[in-house]
């Protein structure tokens, strides 16, 4: 469905005087999602996860520079094609209720999303009604304003907004943020249902535990770089994980020892070498010289010279 190869995103800004400065936010990122699959993208905050979603929708700010190759349904994803596809083929499920207009009724906003995704004017009301019913939202909720929604309800409205059209690729940005475990489970369940109908779901989150409940595969992000692609089953504590960063992330979970393994990786502007090398006990001269490519190791992919 989606194939991202060697994606880099950098921002240029002018500092004091007229010196142009480039900040690299995502570097050499690879990502692949098949239909019917939930691919979780996990990483610390600031790793560039949300930027990835914005890049896939082509809604980055104008000072962003994107390079690398993107393929959607086996055809190159150009800027022009993206303009047509966003909303109709690729949809965003945003992370919080602030992504709804505070002054517009919920129903109006879902209906607008339906119109934009290509539903005709006559078909819109029944389509919206079905979307509401699918996510167990009462009819009168359509007349509410976003501030009247509870956290779980807001999540369902956002999911309804994104799925009211026929998008095949859904980008869920932090769907469990700020929800209690019951509501989070429900939100993840909805994503699983969508994947089971043949849609591809990109689940962007910092919460590995939540992601593992529904994801098929996990891509681990470290400082704007994909360091490992593993099957969800690999996260079982039996040493199947490949990259030292993934291991450290896994061990930092409360259930697995709660070991704060490394200081947060903040910057990715250094140009050469492995981004994680400063915190890695296996590092040697090779790690500082060039960024490792993704290698296939026992059923997954890892970006490490030594794994």
């Amino acid at each position: 469905m989606l194939d991202v190869h060697d994606l880099s995103i950098s921002f240029s800004s002018y500092t004091l005087g007229l010196k142009k400065k480039e900040v690299c936010a995502i570097r050499s990122l690879d990502l692949r999602i098949a239909p019917g699959e939930i691919m979780a993208v996990v990483g610390q905050s600031g790793a560039g996860k949300s930027l990835l979603a914005h890049a896939l929708l082509g809604i980055l700010p104008p000072n962003a520079k994107v390079s690398g190759s993107l393929f959607f349904k086996s055809r190159p994803l150009t800027a022009e094609r993206l303009t047509d596809l966003r909303g109709s083929q690729i949809a965003l499920i945003p992370q919080s209720v602030t992504y709804l207009n505070p002054l517009l009724r919920v129903g109006t906003q879902v209906a607008r999303a339906a119109r934009l995704s290509g539903v005709s004017r006559d078909e819109t009301p029944p389509v919206v009604r079905r979307a509401f019913a699918r996510y167990l939202l009462d009819k009168e909720v359509a007349d509410w304003f976003p501030f009247q929604l509870s956290g779980g309800m807001a999540r369902r409205v956002l999911t309804a907004t994104a799925t009211v059209g026929k998008a095949d690729l859904l980008l869920a940005d932090e769907p469990t943020n700020g929800l209690d475990s019951a509501a989070a489970g429900e939100a993840l369940g909805h994503l699983r249902e969508l994947a089971d109908t043949g849609k591809a779901v990109l689940l962007i989150t910092h919460d590995i535990k939540a992601a593992l409940q529904v994801a098929d595969k996990v891509t681990v992000f470290c400082a704007g770089n994909s360091v490992e692609v593993a099957a969800a089953e690999d996260f079982n504590g039996h040493g199947r994980l490949r990259h030292p960063y993934t291991k450290a992330l896994w061990n930092a979970l409360p259930a697995n020892g709660f070991r704060m393994a490394m200081p947060p990786v903040i910057t990715s502007s250094q140009n050469d070498g492995c981004l994680f090398r400063l915190y890695c006990h296996k590092q040697d001269s090779l790690c500082g010289k060039r960024l490792p490519g993704l290698r296939n190791t026992n059923g997954g992919w890892v970006r490490c010279h030594h794994a």
């Binding site: 809604i59 303009t83 966003r86 909303g87 965003l92 602030t98 505070p102 907004t161």
Partner: peptide
């Protein structure tokens, strides 16, 4: 630059659409 404008753009709304359907109300107040 608000979240709801970003979401509208992600849904495929044009700049004029965002101004007239989303921003106007919030600016008019």
């Amino acid at each position: 630059h608000s979240d709801y404008a970003i979401f509208a753009r992600a849904q495929g709304e044009s700049t004029i659409g965002i101004v007239l359907r989303q921003a106007v109300r919030n600016v008019a107040l």
